[in-house]
Design a protein around this nucleic acid. Structure first.
Lengths: 345, 345
DNA sequence: AATTAGCACTCTCGCCACGAGAGTGCTAAA
DNA sequence: TTTAGCACTCTCGTGGCGAGAGTGCTAATT
């Protein structure tokens, strides 16, 4: 399959690099001049014809310059993935920002989104780390007013969920505290099934709470994509692909429809994947909305404890050389933070 | 100032209504035909000339139809504000959605954003209700691992804030519970100053926690724009104003830069304001980014307890007749929910 | 005095032709 | 294998042209 000569490879790289920069079809002559190649335009033309034949390049119209195809980008990315790395100074700057910031998940997520958007000049998407298997840690019941009770639920990973529930009748704080204390003792460290198996030997109030609690834990464990942190929308809106074509603009529905994003993130079987970073180019056939876009994704966190996803969405003509290492690096950074904060063994 | 004849008024209304629908300059002949007016185009032309003279209309080029000016929209809105109201069926549908939904602020906010975006076909912005004066209600300290401690802080309004803090040395859960219990007793119902004035008679651990607690309460009380819920981005991107002009697209930075939004929301002195709904047209001179846009805003909640803001951002050519009553109605709905949930007499 | 018909004028927009420029493929020579 | 040369293609910007829509003004009408 890999029939590319060395020269064809570098040529392909150059075309793609140029196109990423200029967003304009690249011609043989322009390429020679720009990089002072020791070859004539005619030779380049021949090579380009070969690359076009092989499906890595494409001409928008007869007798226009060449533009990379999806396969072209894929090849480019697969070559790029392992070698590319972020300069040390950038790495330091970024990690410095993280470590000097407040110990606050919310803050970290925002920071990650901001860094990704800035480095890649595209739209960043970050989901908060979510516990894989919700395990009960602590429950708190606080009467707020009348029949309204605030239930605060803490998971082993440190995840907190709060909910206001309305009881059938007013219950004094004392009684609530008793119930909470009892449940805390019984339920400690149990997962969803564990909690479900407790149902015996409780009174009506505790039974009610148990039910809600199960719902909550199931929600946390299963779905709860939670908040999606994002940044750099304006980056991507400035790109010609998005201002011109309706097609690309439609990709921003991902932004609003969490279910799509959910699908996207859970789809772990992807074409180009090295070092934990996955690159989805042009929707890979399945994603109508992403036909003109690329997505660079990575999971982060500690498997079995808590994980999240982060990534960058941009035009197919995206600065992969910068984006991929950034995504990888930030994912690593967040993984460290998760493991530090949530404790692992 | 109000020199408009009755006929001029209705004419202005018609032009604006048409322009809102079609986004195209409105000519005299087209207007007559469309509404079967008992007047000739020539008469309309004269009236239009007068309206143009007065600054309510404008022609993009000599000999093109007329387009409303900002002042035109303002006039339109001021006429529209009081009379317009949402049809009963719509009101019922919306409030039904709210009351049958889970008792969950997060859910309400999303729902509000969704309803606003849908009704107005524009971009909706909703901030969570935030307590005006944070009052301490309850504190919980939970040891997670080693020196990491999870602090859960509950305010009187039901607002919850969590934070992970790292102690100088490991402290057993027992000790933490003691400290929490003590602080809970002392601090009950105090506001920020109240908490600050306690500092005496506590040991090092409690002192540390007190400091963090103050910070947190201050954060909740003062700033904490909190999450901004939003929906309908695609609505607004589909509008011609946003696809064509860079100017309008720049308005979406409001979206990303919370500080701007913050400014916007706190600016309560606005030109057209009736029934709690405020309409900002074309940035009103101060907002560079909004030159091509309009914003319909309202505060909701219970003053002195908890309030939030919600609104809609769209092109100046926005469906005010539908948007304004919707904003007003949803604001009222959320106010009721806040007052129900957070108590208050 | 208000309304309208008529008319000349203006400006946009779509269409088409045209030439410049950039790029291509192919063939033949180096 | 590379390159020079050449004929060819296609886009794009420009300018001319006519249709269409709209305007303002004046004079006639009600």
């Amino acid at each position: 399959m890999n029939e590319l000569t060395e020269r064809q490879k570098t040529l392909l790289m150059l075309v793609i690099r140029d196109y990423i920069e200029t967003a304009q079809p690249i011609g043989s002559k322009a390429l020679v001049e720009r990089y002072h190649l020791d070859l004539s335009p005619a030779t380049i033309r021949n090579e380009m014809a070969a690359l076009t034949e092989m499906g890595y390049l494409r001409q928008p119209h007869t007798s226009a310059g060449r533009v990379p195809t999806e396969d072209g980008y894929r090849y480019f990315v697969s070559q790029m993935m392992h070698k590319a790395d972020l300069p040390d100074t950038v790495r330091h700057t970024i990690s410095h920002q993280f470590y000097q910031s407040r110990q606050d998940v919310d803050h970290w997520m925002n920071l990650a989104a901001s860094v990704l958007a800035h480095q890649s000049q595209a739209l960043s998407l970050v989901t908060a780390p979510r516990v894989e298997q919700a395990r009960f840690k602590h429950l708190e019941l606080i009467s707020t007013q009348g029949r309204q009770v605030l239930m605060v639920l803490v998971m082993v990973g440190g995840e907190v969920s709060q909910q206001i529930l309305t009881l059938a009748e007013p219950v004094p704080q004392e009684r609530l505290s008793q119930a909470a204390a009892r449940l805390n003792q019984i339920l400690s460290n149990r997962d969803v099934e564990g909690v479900a198996s407790v149902s015996a030997r409780t009174d009506a109030l505790e039974q009610d709470i148990l039910t809600l609690l199960q719902q909550d834990m199931r929600r946390i464990g299963e779905q709860s994509p939670g908040e999606i942190y994002t940044d750099g929308l304006t980056n991507v809106l400035a790109e010609p692909e998005f201002t011109d074509s309706d097609d690309a603009r439609r990709a921003l529905r991902l932004f609003e429809e969490r279910s799509m994003l959910q699908d996207l993130l859970s789809n772990t079987v992807m074409k180009s994947s090295v070092g934990g970073v996955q690159v989805l180019i042009g929707g890979e056939g399945t994603w109508e909305e992403l036909r003109q876009c690329s997505v660079v994704l990575a999971r982060y966190g500690v498997p079995g404890l808590a994980t999240g996803t982060l990534g960058v969405l941009g035009p197919m003509r995206m600065a992969y050389a910068r984006t991929i290492p950034t995504v990888r690096f930030v994912a690593g950074l967040l993984s460290d933070l998760v493991s530090d904060t949530m404790g692992g063994e």
